[in-house]
């Protein structure tokens, strides 16, 4: 028996979404096959990594990743420029973390000003994230959308509890949208349907299936992503066809493996390498499951992820 390449053909295709403007704009998605299987389909765009930047100094980040941004992280504009100019960031993800009512409760107007300042300083695409407080995010992101008008940003995250305001604002200002639901294929589909029912084009949505860190439920995210991608390709389900985003830094840099010292846990080995490797391994796992865009923190972990992506092309 001669070997015959076992090709599958799919009716569906992942939507191609462009963010940013000018020659620094990036495209994600667009593939009509499972991750990197170019023997049977086209993968026009490789996964993109965005560097996470916060509007407030990252005092609650573990030491290993805080140290990587020493001297620049006190101010979001400096921090974002550093990522773009010195670290070669393909995109910046600005998290408006200080707006959370339990943090500084920064006003939507002040947050919008931060967005304008960061946008004025960078030319790579900007992802604008709230603080993951459903009610407050609706107000903050509405103001941010307006401030970022014309820059084709990616705004999020719209969730079931707050999508209406955010969708309307993103639509009015011409931005792309992150739709996030809680680790469930049907919820992800349902939210996309609700959003499109408001008149927002499904071709402009990016799905956040909800991420998790290696060792802390990554297999759930992994399988939800594989199922979403299968539905998009095999069942040609347009409501499942948006590219997928994984906001992993916030999950990875919260687990013990990125914080506990080697002297406390000698079986776990060197903290710095362990922590960096935890983030890059999480990224690689989810890239295998079909991630199109990842938000990450440590420059060294990002470097590894980019090296892997280059080898996957």
């Amino acid at each position: 028996m001669a070997f015959v390449v076992p090709k599958d053909t799919y009716n569906g295709k992942v939507f191609e979404v462009e963010i940013g403007t000018g020659d620094k704009a990036v495209k994600i998605g667009g593939e009509n096959t499972l991750p990197f299987l170019t023997f049977e389909g086209a993968v026009p765009n490789m996964p993109v990594i965005a560097h996470e930047v916060q509007d407030v100094a990252p005092e609650d980040w573990p030491e290993t990743v805080q140290a990587a941004y020493k001297g620049v992280s006190g101010d979001p504009v400096t921090w974002a420029k550093h990522c773009q100019d010195n670290l070669g960031a393909q995109a910046i993800a600005l998290r408006l973390y200080s707006t959370h009512p339990d943090r500084q409760d920064t006003s939507p107007e002040a947050a919008a000003k931060t967005v304008s300042d960061v946008l004025a300083a960078i030319s790579v695409p900007l992802i604008i994230l709230g603080s993951n407080h459903a009610e407050k995010d609706a107000q903050v992101l509405r103001a941010a959308c307006e401030a970022a008008k014309g820059r084709n940003c990616l705004i999020g995250k719209a969730q079931e509890a707050n999508y209406k305001t955010i969708v309307a604002a993103a639509m009015a200002a011409g931005h792309k949208l992150i739709a996030m639901s809680d680790l469930d294929v049907n919820l992800a589909k349902q939210l996309n349907i609700l959003i499109t029912q408001m008149g927002y084009e499904k071709e402009k949505i990016v799905t956040d299936p909800m991420s998790s860190a290696l060792g802390y439920g990554i297999e759930y995210t992994y399988s939800v992503m594989e199922r979403i991608r299968s539905a998009a390709l095999m069942q040609n389900d347009g409501t499942m066809a948006p590219p997928m985003l994984n906001d992993i830094g916030m999950y990875v840099w919260k687990v013990k493996e990125t914080m506990a010292s080697e002297s406390d846990l000698p079986d776990w080995g060197a903290l710095e390498e362990r922590a960096i490797g935890w983030e890059s391994t999480t990224a690689v796992g989810l890239i295998m499951a079909g991630s199109n865009l990842l938000i990450m923190r440590h420059p060294k972990a990002i470097e590894t992820a980019k090296k892997v992506i280059a080898e996957l092309a």
Binding site: L214, G215, G217, G269, A270, L271, R274, W278, G285
Partner: peptide, 18 residues
């Protein structure tokens, strides 16, 4: 198989094979 490296790989294998 530095400990820091294999810890992550062992965790990933455990997760994928759950």
């Amino acid at each position: 198989i530095a400990k820091w490296k294999s810890l992550a790989l062992i965790a990933l294998r455990q997760n994928i094979y759950t």
